[in-house]
Design a binder for these strands. Structure first.
Lengths: 346, 346
DNA sequence: CAAGCATCAGATAACGATGTCATGTTTTCA
DNA sequence: TGAAAACATGACATCGTTATCTGATGCTTG
């Protein structure tokens, strides 16, 4: 018994067939008699034969590798997205590679190019904050590899995407506060380059206008999607002569910061201040009071992204044909918890 | 101009050298004149040549792939560990593959084996809850691949590990409460199979004994390391005729649940109830009051793990020689925040 | 019954790198 | 100064698959 890992040649020899026949069996190709097929399969099982992906990749055009590219800070749900992708890809024999890239760095192109070209990637999944990074996308497009962007900011010609309607969602949240009677509603934006920042802000503005109000720059702050970044924002808002009675934070982490500052000042929540977040990450339920927020259907987004790619990849690829694409908008919904209430009487 | 990706042959032709010489330049081998080396490098840059990893992997024994294997639920810091590994591996040309495996499933062996054997992995990083899974580890050891376990429960002969002293850390936390004057201290354990569960519990018990107390089964609960799992545990503890004045939760998520239940019952925190967590994940600072906890030096753990592997991998591998190993215990420290105080007078 | 076709199977050439070995040139140093 | 050592290069086999031929069978079909 050799100690080496068995190769297709060992299988062929043991099964009394040619290597090509074994290959045919492995890939479920035609022109193998049922009898031969079964014999080969039995031998493969006996030898615990496992095809070498490097060899398959070298010869064929598939690497069975799909990369998830994101940046720091990734969305708070980066991990969950990965889990979702993983479970879908696993059954199809694909493996997930993760790559964090510094989208501000000058080696972005080089990094992505190395990834895509050296590893012969089969596909790429992009999440925040690189969903709309032209450098990254152009490298991927040049390599003619299918890709999906998860919750991108803009539509694009090439590639696929999955998302919810962020503008409508922010609109819904703000309407919820307006319906409670709030009229002075603060807003904490996300960072400039992040997908979603603009859309969430404009949903907020639209809602105000539907009630005949104009966004007031005095109660609009710019955060960075992190807990820490929202602390000073909140402090300023709550120190105003006429502080807001409610605050819309562009994500849950920042909303948690709003809660902490409010607690620290001894405000009664939600009576003195209503707070809403965005995304419905686990944290939203773990803070006090639990956050009213918009649920990102993360599992569904990941599923949809994986499904789109698997569809594209299992379809036989014609040489000239451009990569097929799909765009999917999933339903969102507002989750009402205890961080929102009508404003207290003055 | 061909549209194909350039290969080593194209480079050789353009530089007027043999493919072997180009290979030498790529791998910084000896026996290439400075002049030739420079010429080849110029051509490589011009053609934007990038070596095909599949080919390198097929011929050589390196795949440049390292896998991070974990299970659901992974530690709350799975994502951060990955980020840490990523930045270290990136510069060395390694890529990180992630694999979530169901450690309860019956296909564990198959899954890990496929991963390790088909992809020719160079190394594996294991985190909770598979750091101590014998099935997984034995497959990896059989393939003779170096691996590092991050915060494992037990020491092992093979492989490397990085960790903090969890027992001592839990001991420190409990001592902190005892020093405040608490004598009735509840404990919420982690799930049975998880690394850390046993060590944290025994650290708690040791601390009590140092004060001449015996652990009281009535105020010891079993949770699952998740927020939800700790809710009923806490409810029971707080409903006792003689409820604890402090609760040690085995991780921060469960501590957050303790806080929520306490808030819900109108308790004043930390006066009526002191709470401590474990891990110091981001959440610890985002809840109210912020949690006293033990900091897992995640960045340092990831760094150490990556460093160990890189060391092993860059060392020339001798055929017969077993994989080298290293064990590192990093310092921990208790982070005191506002969730702990002396017990209120009755 | 020869020709045509679908089916089954194998020999052999790729894929793109690295390893082995051979060969010629230059340096070293006893 | 002569032999050994170090340097510089290239031809060619090789890794484990898949793809392209080519050949051999049996079965229709006119």
């Amino acid at each position: 018994m050799s100690d080496r890992k068995p190769t297709i040649i060992d299988v062929a020899r043991a099964a009394g067939a040619s290597i090509k026949t074994v290959s045919r069996v492995m890939n479920n190709e035609r022109y193998v008699s049922a009898e031969t097929r079964e014999r080969v399969q039995r031998v493969m099982a006996e030898l615990q034969f496992q095809p070498n992906k490097s060899a398959q990749s070298l010869k064929g055009d598939k690497s069975y590798l799909i990369a998830h590219v994101y940046g720091d800070p990734g969305g708070p749900y980066t991990g969950q997205i990965q889990m979702g992708l993983l479970t879908r890809f696993r059954d199809q024999g694909y493996h997930l590679l993760i790559e964090e890239i510094d989208y501000r760095g000058d080696d972005v192109e080089d990094r992505v190019s190395k990834l895509v070209n050296q590893l012969n990637l089969d596909a790429v999944v992009l999440t925040a904050p690189v969903t709309d990074n032209d450098t990254v996308i152009s490298v991927i497009e040049r390599a003619n590899i299918p890709y999906v962007r998860v919750t991108p900011q803009h539509e694009r010609d090439g590639g696929s995407s999955v998302r919810i309607d962020e503008r409508a969602a922010a609109n819904d949240l703000t309407m919820h506060l307006l319906a409670f009677g709030h009229r002075r509603i603060g807003f904490i934006k996300g960072p400039e380059h992040h997908a979603g920042t603009r859309l969430r802000y404009s949903g907020y503005c639209d809602a105000l206008r539907e009630y005949g109000l104009e966004p007031d720059p005095e109660i609009i702050e710019q955060g960075g999607f992190t807990y820490r970044s929202a602390l000073p924002c909140t402090r300023r808002l709550l120190s105003l002569a006429e502080p807001p009675t409610a605050i819309v934070a562009s994500n849950d982490e920042m909303a948690a910061a709003v809660l902490s500052v409010a607690h620290d000042r001894g405000l009664s929540l939600p009576g003195d201040l209503s707070v809403v977040g965005f995304d419905d990450i686990e944290l939203a339920e773990m803070v006090w009071p639990p956050l009213t927020t918009v649920k990102q259907p993360i599992q569904e987004l990941a599923d949809a992204a994986a499904e789109i790619l698997v569809n594209i990849l299992t379809r036989k690829k014609q040489p000239g044909e451009p990569a097929p694409q799909a765009h999917r908008v999933l339903p969102h919904h507002v989750v009402i918890r205890r961080s929102t209430a009508p404003p207290a009487r003055r």
